[in-house]
Write a protein that binds this DNA or RNA. Structure first.
Length: 944
RNA sequence: GCUCGAGUGGCGGAAUUGGUAGACGCGCUGGAUUCAAAAUCCAGUUCUUUCGGGAGUGUGGGUUCGAUUCCCACCUCGAGUACCA
């Protein structure tokens, strides 16, 4: 009978759905295994063959673990809040919930066709109120917590009030806003309610503060740092400008050190760890105060700088402040006022992108003010310059031109002195930045000290004289946690009579996203939720009511911002453990059983976004005792991207004539993307289909070669706009889901990017056909296997394959395990093996890839064991043990011939046998070898 | 610039702790079957050769009896990051 993949796959997919074959239980005697994929955003375009790559890998591993006797949790869901649905809504008026629902249907249908073993009973959707009510709850927990540096954990904010009441904030060692003043108990007790609330906000882990944000005017929203790439928005590529705004932020910086330290405990790819380490950007150095000497200043004032090279302090010849630095206006002398103000204005106008594309231009202005060097007491000029960033360190630097290239360039540009404080180093051309080889000179008490020693000595002195102290700085910033958008989780906050934020208590969540007439911002620039008619909080009845009822005594306005895209994905992995729990995000029992993700597969593009934020939330939930693990994913694998093979037709410039690829050499042509579905495997274009494709090609002329139009090919990212998308549905139609799954794995190593080539699929497809053939299935669908004893050779093939595939899957080397199966089928075909003893275990083993075929056959032959519960075949080493081995015989490391030698021969016996062989004698031609190296079981090498 | 990662046939890619380089698949060549095609099966396929061999894993060195594998220098490509003081 023919291999009818469609019938087989349909039948078993239905069977699994009806029998809930892959439903995981929260109670089991088996050890647990949690295999997770990064859940997709359900876009309108549906899946292409690149999307399921990681899902296939995790699915194989999940099935493998089930075979090995684990209770496996392998869920899937949707990250369903997001921008595309909202933009579609703005254009069409269609509610995002509706398009999202439709897209999810398409996704589900496509995923089902590929035959994944997902436990769909645990599906989550971040846009479901049942789900986001818990996202909102995490927000309120963060709001009601602060970070205690002594305990090194998050604690309830309520703890702070008695401390403030009795001692003020002086003894408190907690993370807070940089500008938090010191207060005494008396201060606190004299605070009004509003002042108390404002003060507490400086400690909350999610807080409201005026901050400089990345504002994207085109998208009408703020963006987090990781959403800005090269000064433009990651989505859409629109310009981004800096703007001061009142914003919700998350105090992720409180966790900077722990996020760094705990990387050591998790088995994640080194590149991801490196990226996160870089992003957190820890640097150790010192804070140093420079006294400002300005007649204009009445009170004593100083500039604080952060430096990683306090050892070079005697090389300071000027200081530079960021143009935005608060001291700038205070210290600027009247003579310089005009120039400084013009410069500040010009900098503010420039977008981040302009500032970056212009790195090489040195610019700045002298403020007219001077500072006093803390040791030499010399006066040094204070400049402003845009190479100093307001957001890092203190927004001011002590410039050491001989030791820092940027300071050097600045000094050269403005003709400032470049004192050399390095021993035996020439700094006339360039700065000397190599601190490992630095020996300090001309530096008073630091002279002749190497870098490390000088670093320690100067810090000791700075601390003694109270002009500086050791400081660790992080590049990581607090994450902006609000978007001026509609399609996101509402922030569960209302504003009380003092206009201070108050969270909505857990029992009244979810705060459901309101209906709005328009998804655009309001006319006065408020976020889209400003269009909602019913968007006020009635504190008497704890429910949402009409805006008309706002009286600021019991009914208050609700927050108009929504949460950013990464909110739901920061904790969803815990939800799968107990997806239908209405009271809590997951029960204590479920959390205690599943604990954490054992294998997490997804793309590396989330390194500084989702993969960092989710670690932060998990640590917070851990601190507050809600989860059992401080890291949620033990092992992470980044699957590579599957690239598309774009096709191009070549149109001569200024004409509508297309030349076949071989004819374009002398012509000026413009390559045009052609839909890959018009091209066959030999790169031949279906001209008729192409003409019908677009109006402007209707009358196109084609110059052919050998009566064919041949297209050009190029590997690019798979995308709709490049017309190189391959739909998995088409592959399933023609070759079946098993072929698709096998082929995606066979393409190459999981973690590597690789181009998709539909022509290659014939290899795995014919492998499946050959496999099917082995079972000699007749027209009635019966399997005709022999119950006689199989040959030793066939048993060896089986057990060799078991051993290899077991090892390969355990190492996530899926491509080589597919090869092993192919070899096995080729061997068994050649051996004419049709023995049940060999072929049934082979199918169980193969089922991670082709369960449908396997189950089909098990059923037909009267076996009813579900693949999910069938035992993994036991590997029997005895079939692999051989009595003899083909030894390569080498002369000076070069292989000359082989000899079959018994494996139980001693070293001496092997040497004797080899030396006596006539081929050895021929090679030696009478000479005596210097040495004979015998590695039992491996090789014999004769040196001489 | 800095930090990682990778360079193997026409192509995707294999190769345990250093031990017969090119597994497996695509493509290609020849053959069988067929009126023919598709499908299937068989044989071949790194380059070179005077048919004994010789060369060969980006380049140049080194360690070793023996290097795709280890070490040093360089070249190329990819990814991340970028005035971070």
């Amino acid at each position: 009978m023919k291999y009818l993949h469609k019938d087989i796959e349909e039948k078993w997919q239905k069977y699994w759905a009806v029998n809930q074959t892959f439903k995981a239980s929260n109670t089991s005697d088996k050890p647990k295994f949690y295999a997770l994929d990064m859940f997709p955003y359900p876009s309108g375009a549906g899946l292409h063959v690149g999307h399921p790559l990681g899902y296939i890998a995790s699915d194989i591993y999940a099935r493998y673990k089930r075979h090995k006797g684990f209770n496996v949790l392998h869920p899937q869901g949707y990250d369903s809040f997001g921008l595309p649905a909202e933009q579609y809504a703005i254009q069409t008026g269609q509610h995002p919930a509706k398009t999202t629902e439709e897209n999810i249907k398409t996704y589900r249908r496509q995923l089902d066709r590929i035959g994944f073993s997902f436990d769909w009973s645990r599906e989550v959707r971040t846009s479901n109120p049942d789900f986001y009510k818990h996202t909102q709850w995490v927000f309120t927990e963060l709001f009601n917590a602060y970070y205690c540096k002594d305990a090194n954990q998050a604690r309830p904010i309520s703890e702070l009030i008695p401390v403030f009441e009795t001692e003020g904030n002086l003894p408190l060692n907690a993370v807070c806003d940089e500008d938090t003043p010191q207060i005494t108990a008396a201060d606190w007790n004299h605070f009004s309610d509003k002042e108390k609330q404002e003060f507490l906000l400086k400690y909350r882990l999610t807080y409201l503060k005026e901050t400089t944000v990345n504002w994207c005017p085109k998208l009408g929203t703020v963006l987090a740092n990781d959403e800005v790439v090269n000064g433009v928005s990651e989505r859409g590529g629109y310009p981004v400008v800096q703007k001061k705004m009142m914003q919700w932020s998350m105090r992720i910086t409180a966790y900077a050190q722990r996020l760094l330290d705990d990387l050591q405990d998790i088995d994640w790819p080194q590149p991801i760890k490196d990226i996160q380490t870089n992003w957190i950007g820890r640097s150790e150095g010192a804070m140093v105060s420079f006294l400002v000497k300005s007649e204009k200043l009445k009170e004593k004032s100083s500039v604080e700088v952060f430096t990683t090279r306090p050892d070079t302090i005697f090389g300071v010849s000027f200081m530079t402040l960021a143009p935005e630095h608060e001291l700038v206006s205070k210290i600027t002398t009247p003579e310089q006022k005009e120039a400084v103000e013009a410069y500040v204005k010009a900098t503010a106008k420039r977008t981040e992108r302009e500032r970056m594309s212009d790195v090489k231009t040195v610019s700045g202005v002298f403020t007219g003010a001077y500072a006093e060097h803390p040791f030499t007491k010399e006066l040094i000029p204070i400049y402003i310059g845009d190479y100093v960033l307001a957001g890092y360190g203190t927004g001011a630097v002590m410039a050491v031109p001989c030791g820092d290239q940027r300071d050097y360039d600045f000094a050269k540009h403005f003709g400032l002195p470049i004192p050399n404080i390095f021993k035996a180093v020439d700094v006339s051309e360039t700065a000397f930045e190599d601190k490992g080889n630095a020996v300090i000179a001309n530096s008073d008490f630091l002279t002749d000290l190497p870098y490390k020693k000088a670093f320690k000595t100067v810090l000791y002195e700075l601390e003694k004289q109270k002009i500086g102290y050791t400081k660790t700085n992080y590049r990581l910033r607090d994450a902006i946690f609000a978007r001026q958008r509609y399609w996101g989780e509402p922030i569960p906050v209302f504003y009380d009579e003092n206009s201070m934020p108050q969270t909505i208590a857990k029992e009244y969540l979810p705060l459901i996203l309101p209906e709005v007439a328009k998804y655009l911002p309001t006319e006065d620039g408020q976020p889209p939720l400003g269009n909602a008619k019913n968007w006020a909080w009635d504190t008497a009845n704890n429910k949402v009511v009409s805006n008309n009822l706002i009286d600021n005594t019991t009914v208050f306005p609700l927050e108009l911002n929504t949460m950013p895209g990464w909110a739901g994905s920061s904790w969803y992995f815990n939800r799968y453990m107990d997806a239908h729990n209405n009271d809590e995000f997951a029960s204590k029992e479920a959390l205690a059983y599943w604990q954490d993700v054992d294998l997490y597969i997804g793309g590396s593009e989330h390194a500084t976004g989702h993969l960092l934020y989710s670690r932060f939330w998990q640590k917070f939930l851990f601190d507050r005792g809600f989860v059992t693990k401080k890291e949620y994913a033990k092992k992470l694998i980044n699957q590579g991207m599957i690239l598309g093979e774009s096709a191009f037709a070549y149109r001569e410039e200024g004409t509508n004539t297309f030349y076949s690829k071989g004819l374009i050499t002398a012509k000026k042509v413009q390559p045009i993307h052609v839909d890959v579905s018009f091209v066959n495997t030999s790169n031949e274009l279906n001209v008729a289909a192409f003409k019908n494709w677009r109006e402007d090609f209707k009358d196109a002329k084609f110059v052919l070669e050998d009566a064919k139009y041949i297209v050009g090919r190029e590997v690019e990212k798979m995308s709709k706009s490049k017309y190189n998308v391959v739909n998995p549905d088409d592959i399933c139609d023609e070759y079946g889901a098993d072929s698709l799954r096998l082929f995606e794995m066979f393409l190459g190593p999981l973690e590597q990017s690789k181009p998709w080539k539909t022509s290659g699929i014939s290899g795995v497809y014919s492998f499946l056909k050959k496999l099917w053939k082995l079972y000699q299935i007749d027209e009635q669908g019966n399997v005709n296997l022999s119950d006689e004893e199989p040959s030793k050779e066939s048993m060896k093939t089986l057990h060799k394959t078991i051993k290899k595939v077991d090892e390969d899957i355990a190492n996530f080397s899926f491509n080589t395990s597919v090869s092993s199966f192919m070899i096995a089928v080729n061997e068994l075909t050649q051996q004419k093996c049709n023995h049940r003893t060999v072929l049934e275990p082979l199918l169980v083993l193969l089922s991670p890839y082709a369960p449908h075929t396997a189950e089909e056959l098990w059923q037909k032959t009267g076996h009813t064991a579900s693949i999910a519960t069938a035992p993994f075949p036991v590997f029997d080493a005895s079939y692999l043990i051989e009595s003899s081995k083909t030894y390569p015989i080498s002369f000076n490391g070069k292989m000359r011939f082989t000899m079959d030698l018994s494996l139980d021969l001693s070293k001496e016996a092997i040497e004797k046998a080899v030396m006596e062989d006539e081929r050895t004698q021929k090679q030696l031609a009478g000479r005596t070898p210097k040495k004979v190296i015998v590695v039992p079981g491996k090789i014999v090498n004769i040196v001489g």
